[in-house]
Every structure is written in structure tokens, then in C-alpha cells.
């Protein structure tokens, strides 16, 4: 789905933002891109959809070289949800706002109507709302709807939950997960919230100073404190807690698993 081949990107030769990166992301995967601010996360997401072009090397999206394909064409394969929905909202009603992307991509009019109506229902929006005066969470949902109405094969989420409360956050993440499972949409999520990453991502790519520091299944990375520490991210609480007890809680990653394990131990050991 996404292939980076020896990609270097930077505004100056001496201090590149990305330094000779090679990796690929399979179709249908749910990958989290983690790392501190300035590690190069946003740069990777913008290279993927052709908003940026590599200084050296090549980026392929669905086999298309981003250097040779205009970003408006790449947009058909790749939906992008930005941190700040206000940068894209430009129409007077929710309905028009969602239809905007489809029109921009040149979809047939009759198809636009049906799809827009459907997604408005799924996202629990009102077609006649004036988007600018809705709450931040609602605006983010409108933005996501306008991206997903085109059913892209890849969805990039750039810090999707910044400025959102937990309820809105779960709402958006649950929808994205369903999309990933049912429609096989590939998800690339940029985030520094490890609890979020742990709850939703299947694989993790850890970045530090423009280089890949670690790569692997989420649970593996969550317990690799060396890598997380080097990447200056705050580990998720339960895996960190579990790790402090050596092999005692080897398979524990969530609150429920920890509760089960402690219940069993308390039952056997009889602490109380």
C-alpha cells in the first residue's frame, strides 16, 4: 500500500528531517506512527499523500510514484484527516461541506447525493447545520465524514484526537476501527498518545530524529521501554506497570487483563 524507498527529506543537507528511510505498510494494516514532536511523523504522512516530495528516494502509494502523480490524483487513494478541521471547512452547510471533496474529485452527481446522505446518518450529523458554529468535536466529525465519503483505500489520521474530549475521541476511533475491519481500509495514525495507540493500532513504527527506531506489533513495542524512552514518548500505563514485575505479567496489556491476573493471584495467594 505504502512504500518508502531510501527516502530522505529536508530543507538543509546537513540536518535532514527524514534520513534514508525504507519501510512499507501492507494493505489493510492499522499502523501507528509514534515519536516526539519533530521526529518526522507529520513529514511522513505528508510525503505519503504527495503534499511533500522526497529530497532523495521514492515514495509509492498503491504503486504510484508520488513524484510523478499530482496530489489531487493521490487524494482519491488516500484520505487525510488533519489535526485542525477548521483548515478545511469552507461551505455553509454540513451537506455541502461533505459533498465538497467528492465534487473536487469529480464524482458523478447522482452518486454524491446518496453517499453524502448515508454518511451524514452514520456520523450522526445534521445536513443543515452551519459547520462554523458547531463544537470542536462536531467539526472534527464533519471533517472526517468529508474525507471518508470518498471511501479512500488509505486513511491518514494526523493526531486525530488533539483538542477532542474522550467521548468524541472514542467515537471517531471506533468508526475508524470498524472501517479497518469491515472494509479493509488501511490506517496510518500519527499520535503521541500511547493509550490511544495501544487500544487501536495493530502495528507501530517508532521514529526518532528522522530515523526508524523500532517497528513491530503494538504489544511488543509497548513493552520495549528502551525504544519508547529513546523516542521520548510516555509509555502506556498498564504495560509499563506489568513490565515492572518481570515475567509475572508477561501477557498483560489492558486493565481487564491486569484485573484478571490479580484476581487469580489474590485467589491463590490469598492476600485478602
Amino acid at each position: 500500500m505504502i512504500r518508502f524507498e531510501n527516502v530522505t527529506f529536508g530543507y538543509s543537507e546537513k540536518r535532514p528531517i527524514l534520513d534514508d528511510l525504507t519501510f512499507h505498510i501492507e494493505k489493510g494494516d492499522f499502523v501507528a506512527l509514534i515519536g516526539a514532536n519533530g521526529a518526522g511523523k507529520s513529514t511522513i504522512s505528508r510525503l505519503t499523500n504527495g503534499l511533500l516530495h522526497p529530497t532523495r528516494g521514492h515514495v509509492y502509494l498503491n504503486g504510484k510514484d508520488t513524484l510523478k502523480t499530482p496530489s489531487s490524483a493521490l487524494a482519491r487513494d488516500c484520505g487525510f484527516l488533519f489535526q485542525n478541521p477548521d483548515r478545511q471547512i469552507c461551505e455553509n452547510t454540513v451537506k455541502d461541506e461533505i459533498a465538497f471533496s467528492m465534487k473536487a474529485q469529480g464524482w458523478p452527481t447522482d452518486e454524491i447525493e446518496g453517499r453524502v446522505d448515508r454518511i451524514i446518518k452514520t456520523f450522526d450529523l445534521d445536513p443543515e447545520w452551519f459547520p462554523f458554529s458547531r463544537s470542536r468535536g462536531e467539526r472534527q466529525r464533519i471533517a472526517l465524514a468529508s474525507v471518508l465519503v470518498c471511501e479512500p483505500g488509505l486513511l491518514i489520521l494526523d493526531e486525530p484526537t488533539t483538542g477532542l474530549d474522550y467521548l468524541e475521541c472514542i467515537r471517531i476511533m471506533d468508526y475508524v476501527t470498524r472501517l479497518n475491519k469491515e472494509k479493509g481500509t488501511t490506517i496510518l495514525m500519527v499520535s503521541h498518545d500511547m493509550e490511544l495507540v495501544q487500544s487501536y493500532a495493530r502495528n507501530v513504527l517508532v521514529l526518532n530524529h528522522g530515523k526508524i527506531l523500532g517497528q513491530g506489533p503494538t504489544n511488543e513495542i509497548m513493552k520495549n521501554m528502551d525504544v519508547l524512552k529513546k523516542a521520548r514518548v510516555l509509555p502506556a500505563q498498564i504495560p509499563e506497570l506489568a513490565l515492572r514485575f518481570g515475567d509475572e505479567f508477561k501477557d498483560v496489556f489492558t486493565v481487564e487483563e491486569m484485573l484478571d491476573a490479580l484476581r487469580a493471584k489474590a485467589g491463590k495467594g490469598g492476600a485478602l
Binding site: 474522550y166 493509550e195 500505563q237 484476581r263
Partner: peptide
């Protein structure tokens, strides 16, 4: 209310509720 609580707080609340921890 849609407010997240830290995982360790949730854990301890569960343990207290089940009287595993006092």
C-alpha cells in the same frame, strides 16, 4: 460524562470494588 480516567486509576478502582485491595 465521557471523561477518561487514567488506566491505573481504573485498575485500582476495580480492585477496591472487588475487595482485592483495601
Amino acid at each position: 460524562l465521557g471523561i477518561n480516567v487514567p488506566r491505573v486509576t481504573e485498575l485500582s478502582a476495580g480492585l477496591i470494588r472487588e475487595k482485592i485491595y483495601d
